[in-house]
Amino acid sequence: MIPALSVTLAHYLVVSALIFGIGTVIALSKRNAVAVLMGIELMLNAVNLTLLAFSRFSSAFAPGGEPLSGHVFVVFVLTVAAAEAAVALAMAVLVYRQRETVDLDRINLLRG
C-alpha cells in the first residue's frame, strides 16, 4: 500500500523514465553534434537517478545487498561521462575544422 502523499521508488523511477525518454529524443533527433551530446548526458543522468533511487530505498534489498554500490556506480558514470564529453567535443571541433559545420545531416561523406 502506498500512502497518498508519499514519495516512493516508483515516483523516482517515473521521473527517470521521463528524463531518459526526453534524452533519447534529443540524442536521436538533433542535428547539432553538441545538442546530441546534451541528450546523451541527460540519458546518463536518468541512469544515475535510477541507481540512487534504488540505493536509497535500500531496505528493498535482500540481506547482503550493497546499497552504496549504487553510489559508487554513479561515481563511475560521472567519470566516464566527463571523459566521453571531452573526447566528443574534441571530435566535434575536429570535424568543424574540416567542414565548418557540426550538423550531422550534412556530415555525410560515408555512404554506399
Binding site: 531518459f20 525518454g21 533519447t24 533527433s29
Partner: peptide, 11 residues
C-alpha cells in the same frame, strides 16, 4: 523516429 523511440521508452 526519435520521438517514437523516446516516448516508447519513457512509457
Amino acid at each position: 523516429p526519435g520521438l517514437a523511440a523516446g516516448l516508447g521508452i519513457s512509457g
